[in-house]
Nucleic acid binder design. Sequence first.
DNA 1: TTGACATATTCCCATATGGGAATGTAATAT
DNA 2: ATATTACATTCCCATATGGGAATATGTCAA
Lengths: 107, 107
Amino acid sequence: MPRAATTSDAFNAVAEPRRREILSCLALRERSVGDMVVTLRLAQPSVSKHLRVLRDVGLVRARRQGRRMLYRTNAEAIRPLHEWTKTFERFWQHQLLRVKRRAEAET
Amino acid sequence: MPRAATTSDAFNAVAEPRRREILSCLALRERSVGDMVVTLRLAQPSVSKHLRVLRDVGLVRARRQGRRMLYRTNAEAIRPLHEWTKTFERFWQHQLLRVKRRAEAET
DNA sequence: TTGACATATTCCCATATGGGAATGTAATAT
DNA sequence: ATATTACATTCCCATATGGGAATATGTCAA
């Protein structure tokens, strides 16, 4: 069995650094593909393909405006990732507390 | 260029569902490999290989106890993911507000 | 209709993958 | 020393990948 498809879920989709850049970029405001090509210095087909993946998992939404396509981030789809990482919050807080205590004990 | 290695960073490592299960499991308490095999119903080599990936990116720590290896989650390594998703928090809050307003306007 | 612009898709390829099976390695027990 | 237990690694393979290049699709303008 190979690795799961990038389009299988948000976790797989955001594993790619370029796609994370795109999401950050499109969170602030709607942008066209050509806009992203200039901003991120990527080839147009690459941008389109990344957007396709992000769209398939619902991380971006698109609408047509004349001959352009305008994309924007659908932040709601990032929330499951946030929730998952959040379940570990108390653990790293415990770890930090332990480190702090150890440091204090050493003085 | 193929997909980035699963060991290239935490984002790629946690893209795999089994590895997320392992992390959740090892966050509560230290466990041996055989323990995980039983709990997650995975073949032993699979568990070992997943743990290897998680170790390479610092998501788990290991120590030997006799003939067993005990693993535990290093929650601190999940923090960057949490921070990244957090940057989108205000955006989904905006979206929810908009949905709420629309719902209220329709009544 | 024809052309230009904007984006999407297809084809190519080297590479990393996860599981299964088999094998290697390390530590204890006898 | 040998056997046993507990993990780790290696080999195999079908499959998905991201980039580059080329091509297809879609929209407007004249």
